[in-house]
Write a protein that binds this DNA or RNA. Structure first.
Length: 849
RNA sequence: GCCCGAGUGGCGGAAUGGUAGACGCAGCGGAUUCAAAAUCCGCCGCCGCAAGGCAUGUCGGUUCGAGUCCGACCUCGGGCACCA
């Protein structure tokens, strides 16, 4: 072979690993373990560059840790339940099960050639009955442990299709298929009682030292612990049972500034009022025709309806406020009722201005008497302000926090209300009115009520014979599937037809990988050995829901005896990687509509087939609709897996988005060929001058240090840069063949996590023993990392003007003397004495003039 | 709307508060070649003949020194509980 040929080399080494069982995870008490996990994919049918990037990162870590002597678990599976399978069934008549398993087979075939060090023997899909049956067992245990409850919740209801819609299926308040105005509908649903764990999930975030700060912050804000005032308005002329209106506010200091009260359209009082008031009923209906997503509700135009009722202030019953129904009040948070203090809340202010409600300043900035105009005055709670309208003496200058504390104390003392800790986090509704999910293992019996299924009857399998010709849940209209015997009394009963949210599936798969074939959800000794996940890698889009649910589940599994106490935080370290993006190529058709073109259809800014010039839209997340996708299969076919892997590890820091460019892929491929050539010609090139060996060896050690630091610190792009540097050094050196051979062997090892096939090939070529995958990771000799002389930059007033080369330990005074003797410094001083000379040893000299 | 990020040459990016632009791409010049491909060597932020000046989204601040720290803003991206 005279040049590097990935098409023959890559399959050869994949077979060698397979044959040797190199990547099978083995429980080995003699070794420390390392569990690296990438978020498992949804089986859409095609892998994309985002997957390649995600799994290559995990693979780099897995292979590196293996070389460092760890017993590594690096598994892969499929997040296989979900709506796309049902959509495919509706659109193409496919069976969700067949569609999903075919996609899994296709994606696996696309992934295999990438050479990931995965233990495929542990593979499973969440739609395997063996998996979801164990999930049902977990559900039954959690129900028994009081971790699950049943209550009402609102869903998006499509009145034409007679079906529940996901938020993404509601577009501008209309159903995506029917186009009908969506309604909010109340259903009885199952809930995980995650809000019972709110404080615990919040407090434990502090212990997650190896999670990104931003993720911990996002979760903390999501849980949303607040301390505020809980009180009740009196309601004059209210329907029976609504004489008082409970309210929660996080701003007790503004209790003397409200000018209205407002309740949600779903509030029980609103429902009571609409019964005999058609106008209120019409207004509430309008509010409910908006979908359930918080974003939609908060961005909608603020609308209100004055009920005509008055509420009375707890501290002064003579103080009356109008009671409104408003579309921006959320029933899910607090009590579904708010006080409106327009001066100090922008949303309340917008509402007050729109409906001509008064605005009362509660406090003003220090040294200003200006009243609130268009912008609400909302200072930091730690900022001092002057209170003009509150319970204390007018003109008091204190921080908002202090005023809140004092007001709270006053209300508690007088019995007007009480301090209350409130969380934003709600219970996790898990019921879905869909087919393609894990059936909830409960039975409805006329005699016994709602009872859990017996464990020996698990798994409760989904029926295969279902039709999607009608909207709605096929389980509901299946002729026989619902029929069953009551597990308690044995009489005929009906199965629950709701299935579980797919977030349940992904909330414990990490634990299942430790014993994927077990007939219980987990096996103690396996979980003890492998848990926790040492390094979890995935997209930032999962920062809140998936990760929070997984944290809850690990706790629930510990309580129900399925995980050890040590595993209640399942992910020791988390890394969130960026997306892979690409330019978008667009032309317009005769009617001016955008037409998108795949990258391979475009050359030199023109559509290959027609020669038409394309408009280049800046990089965006790869998406099918914009056609800015690069298929990893094509890249592997034309360049090999190592090129794709090398590319996605190069240039961009892993947490940031990376833009795929054709020239970048070319460059990656060229570099790998160059490395191969350097290895092949190691004895033939250069002058063979042994006096140059030390310089090369020093470079080798510096590279070991940099590559290692890069991998450890999730800065693979810096590892790649260091490896380019080593290749340049080997290429240019005139050192002896022996030194170069040694350098190239180290190169093979350092490259092996990223480009494992090429690494095996050159390791073999240079006479390395066994597989490079089994070789011990090289160590940098600290003595080789220091230089005797250093270059010190000299600044004049903070700007670099010249530099001096000095021995590394030269004393400060000597450095200063040398610096002041430099031509550039003398010129700048122009005979004057410097005001100050700052010498930072080993770093810099700054002469201040 | 709310929460969280990110903005540095033509491009991707590097830089414990201490030489801004490592490394790579593109470009330019050269070597090799009958020619090309491939490969190798060199140059490469902007303005300026130069001295020098200007440059890390914008504006302000702290510091001997700011891409880095602080404040305000702009733009783009992620999440908002039934997409996964």
């Amino acid at each position: 072979m005279s040049r590097y040929d990935p098409a023959t080399v890559e399959p050869k080494w994949q077979e060698a690993w397979e044959k040797a069982g190199t990547f099978l995870a083995k429980r080995d008490p003699a070794k420390p373990k390392y569990y690296v996990l990438e978020m498992f994919p949804y089986p859409s049918g095609r892998i994309h560059m985002g997957h390649v990037r995600n799994y290559t990162m995990g693979d780099v870590v897995a292979r590196y840790k293996r070389s460092c002597g760890f017993s590594v678990l690096h598994p892969m599976g499929w997040d296989a339940f979900g709506m796309p399978a049902e959509n495919a069934a509706m659109e193409k008549g496919a069976n969700p099960r067949d569609w999903t398993y075919q996609n899994i087979a296709d994606m696996k075939e696309q992934m295999k050639p990438l050479g990931f060090s995965l233990d495929w023997t542990r593979e499973f899909a969440t739609c395997d009955p063996e998996y979801y049956g164990q999930q049902q067992a977990l559900f039954i245990d959690m129900l028994a442990a009081g971790l699950i409850t049943r209550k009402n919740a609102v869903v998006n209801w499509d009145p034409v299709d007679m079906t529940v819609l996901a938020n993404e299926q509601v577009i501008d308040g209309k159903g995506w298929r029917s186009g009908a105005e969506v309604e909010r509908k109340e259903l009885t649903q199952w809930f995980f009682r995650i809000s019972d764990f709110a404080d615990e999930l919040l407090a434990a975030l502090d212990g997650l030292k190896d999670w990104p700060e931003k993720v911990r912050l996002m979760q903390s804000n999501w849980i949303g612990k607040s301390k505020g005032l809980s009180f009740s308005f009196g309601v004059k002329g209210a329907p029976a049972g609504f004489e008082t209106l409970p309210v929660y506010t996080t701003r007790p200091d503004t209790m003397m500034g409200p000018t209205f009260a407002a309740i949600a359209a779903d509030h029980p009082l609103a429902k009571a009022l609409e019964k005999d008031n058609p106008e209120i009923a019409a207004f509430c209906a309008k509010c409910r025709g908006m979908g359930t997503s918080e974003a939609a509700i908060e961005q909608a135009e603020k609308l209100g309806y004055d009920t005509g009722l008055k509420v009375t202030h707890p501290a002064d019953p003579t103080l009356e406020l109008p009671l409104w129904i408003a579309n921006f009040v959320l029933m899910d948070y607090g009590t579904g009722a708010v006080i409106g203090c327009p001066a100090h809340d922008q949303r309340d202010l917008d509402f007050a201005r729109k409906y001509d409600l008064p605005v009362i300043d509660v406090f003003k900035p220090l040294g200003s008497d200006e009243s609130v105009g268009k912008t609400a005055f909302v200072p930091q709670k730690t900022e001092k302000v002057r209170y003009v309208q509150w319970h204390g003496a007018p003109g008091t200058e204190i921080t908002c926090q202090e005023a809140m504390d004092r007001t709270l104390a006053l209300y508690e003392e007088k019995g007007w209300g009480e301090a209350k800790v409130q969380f934003r986090l709600r219970d996790w509704g898990l019921s879905r009115q869909r087919y393609w999910g894990c059936p909830i293992p409960v039975v409805h019996c006329d005699a016994c009520g709602v009872v859990p299924e017996k464990k020996e009857n698990l798994p409760i399998e989904l029926p295969a014979d279902v039709s999607f010709d009608k909207p709605g849940n096929p389980l509901d209209r299946h002729p026989t599937w619902r029929d069953c015997a009551c597990p308690t009394c044995g009489r005929p009963a009906r199965r629950e037809t709701d299935t579980m949210d797919t977030f349940v599936d992904s909330s414990w798969y990490y634990a299942r990988f430790t014993a994927p074939r077990a007939t219980t959800p987990t096996v103690a000794e396996e979980a003890e050995y492998w848990m926790n996940v040492d390094q979890y890698i995935g997209g930032i889009e999962h920062a809140i829901l998936h990760l929070l649910y997984s944290r809850f589940f690990a706790r629930a599994m510990q309580i129900t005896g399925h995980l050890p106490k040590t595993a209640i935080e399942p992910f020791d370290a988390l890394f969130t990687q960026g997306m892979v993006t690409h330019e978008i190529y667009m032309t317009r058709d005769e009617r001016g509509r955008a037409v998108y073109h795949l990258p391979e259809e475009v050359e030199d800014g023109k559509v290959k087939a027609t020669g038409e010039a394309v408009t280049i839209v800046p990089s965006a997340k790869m998406s099918k609709s914009k056609k800015n996708v690069v298929d990893p299969v094509n890249i592997v076919d034309s360049f090999g897996a190592d090129t794709a892997r090398w590319f996605v590890m190069s240039d961009s820091p892993p947490e940031r988005d990376v833009e795929w460019t054709a020239s970048g892929a070319d460059a990656a491929s060229k570099h790998l060929s160059r490395v191969w050539r350097l290895a092949a010609e190691v004895d033939a090139r250069g002058a063979g001058d042994a006096s140059q060996d030390l310089a090369l060896i020093k470079t080798v050690h510096r590279t070991i240090a940099e590559v290692t630091a890069g991998i450890e610190g999730f800065a693979f792009n810096k590892s790649v840069a260091a490896l380019y540097g080593l290749a340049n050094a080997v290429q240019r050196t005139d050192a002896s063949a022996g030194a170069k051979r040694q350098a190239m062997q180290v190169m093979a090892q350092l490259m092996s996590p990223m480009t494992p096939h090429l690494a095996e090939e050159i390791w073999d070529m240079l006479g390395g023993k066994g597989l490079v995958a089994d070789a011990e990771w090289p160590r940098a000799d600290p003595a080789m990392l220091v230089d005797d002389e250093i270059v010190l930059p000299i600044q004049i007033n903070g700007k670099k003007r010249c530099e001096i080369t000095v021995p590394k330990d030269l004393p400060r005074e000597e450095v200063e003397k040398l610096a002041l003797a430099e031509d550039g410094v003398i010129r700048a001083l122009d005979g004057r004495a410097p005001k100050k000379v700052i010498v930072v040893p080993g770093r810099i000299v700054n002469v201040v003039i």
